[in-house]
Nucleic acid binder design. Structure first.
Length: 348
DNA sequence: AACCCGGGGTC
DNA sequence: GACCCAGGGTT
């Protein structure tokens, strides 16, 4: 069966006009708002993004504000969202736009995709939603929906499949309403043709075009290769306290959780005795006590943590943070949350 | 093409 | 425990 694309578009857009969710970044699709929301939404659910988006736009209302904001403050605005490279690239992108594009995001897909942090999906989303360019925006939702719609057995995890779908979907995008079309397909993916559970074909406005449904394969598709297993890392977290404050260290500029702040921590598990010997050279230890264990799961690694509270009489030119600083000033990854929460119990 | 990069919802 | 989310960058 060959899909009548015009009828398909109409049915999809009519459904979208009636059932689309009301989202903060949809009410006024300024390029800056669309961009910020799309970066936040990369690998992140809508509900998680909402409060971050509101706070971010309030603090940094324009692209120029973002280009000029202090890096630590910017990371604090992103604290807890994850994939912190996104916000680093956003600032780089903002500075480049101030420099090359007179303080605006460019409108063309081909220019957008050259900017830091903007790949094929995000370029398509900004170009179509903010500037009405007729171009696809192929994300995980779109891959799932079209995989079923066309009964495709291509592995949607492969880059080649994404390119193939991008080319195919170019023919589908509405010339009049590319913005609504792209968002409608994603909306179907989020609300109807859902991940992680059975597709709701009974309420799907485009089920009559769906080749997977027609052949009873909607539960088999899409095809996606399984991911590799996580490795486990043992770490020891040292909450070092002095004078009602805690020692923080800044992580390296690259790699996992780059440039964020953290408690002192060591590879592997250590005994109280080993820690005493380790820190005795640099500190005068007043007390040392064991804290509960904690576990944090990243996408590719798991931290299994042992914790100690060490109270010292001196520090050596290190960053000491009060509870207020920890809460309001320094971006600390969620991995340390268990120990961060305990802080209020030990210092005030 | 394979790997790195967070955190959380949902089954 | 496994999947996967409005992905992109690096090697």
């Amino acid at each position: 069966m060959r899909i009548n694309i015009e009828n398909f578009r109409n049915d999809l857009l009519n459904w979208y006009d009636e059932y689309a969710r009301v989202l903060p970044w949809r009410s006024e699709p300024l390029p800056y708002y669309v961009w910020v929301s799309e970066i936040m939404l990369q690998q992140t659910r809508v509900e998680a993004v909402k409060p971050y988006f509101a706070r971010f736009i309030k603090r940094l209302p324009t692209l120029k504000d973002l280009a000029e904001v202090d890096d630590d403050e910017l990371r604090k605005l992103w604290e807890g969202l994850g994939y912190y490279n996104r916000v680093r690239n956003m600032k780089k992108c903002a500075i480049e736009c101030m420099d090359k594009y007179n303080g605006f995001l460019p409108s063309a897909y081909e220019e957008l995709i050259e900017l830091p942090g903007i790949g094929s999906y995000t370029a398509g989303a900004i170009a179509s939603i903010a500037y009405k360019e007729v171009v696809p925006a192929v994300d995980g939702n779109v891959l799932r929906v079209f995989s079923r719609l066309l009964a495709s057995y291509d592995d949607i995890g492969k880059e080649s499949t994404k390119k193939k779908f991008h080319t195919i979907i170019q023919e589908y995008v509405s010339k009049d309403r590319p913005d609504a079309f792209n968002q409608a397909v994603m909306e179907i993916g989020a609300m109807v043709c859902v991940p992680n559970s059975a597709p709701r074909c009974n309420i799907c406005p485009i089920v009559s075009y769906c080749q997977a449904y027609e052949t009873g394969k909607e539960h088999v598709l899409p095809i996606k290769e399984k991911k590799l297993k996580r490795r486990i890392e043992k770490r020891t977290i040292v909450v070092m306290v002095h004078d009602g404050k805690v020692v923080l260290r800044k992580r390296p500029q690259t790699g996992l959780l780059a440039d964020l702040y953290e408690f002192i921590n060591l590879e592997g598990y250590h005994t109280k005795k080993q820690l005493k010997e380790l820190f005795n050279d640099s500190y005068t230890i007043k007390s040392i006590e064991k804290l509960p264990t904690s576990k944090h799961i990243f996408s590719h690694v798991e931290w299994h943590m042992h914790g100690y509270l060490i109270e010292v009489e001196n520090v050596n030119d290190e960053l000491l943070a009060s509870i207020t600083d920890v809460d309001e000033r320094y971006a600390i990854p969620t991995a340390f949350k268990a120990y961060k929460d305990m802080l209020k119990h030990y210092i005030k």
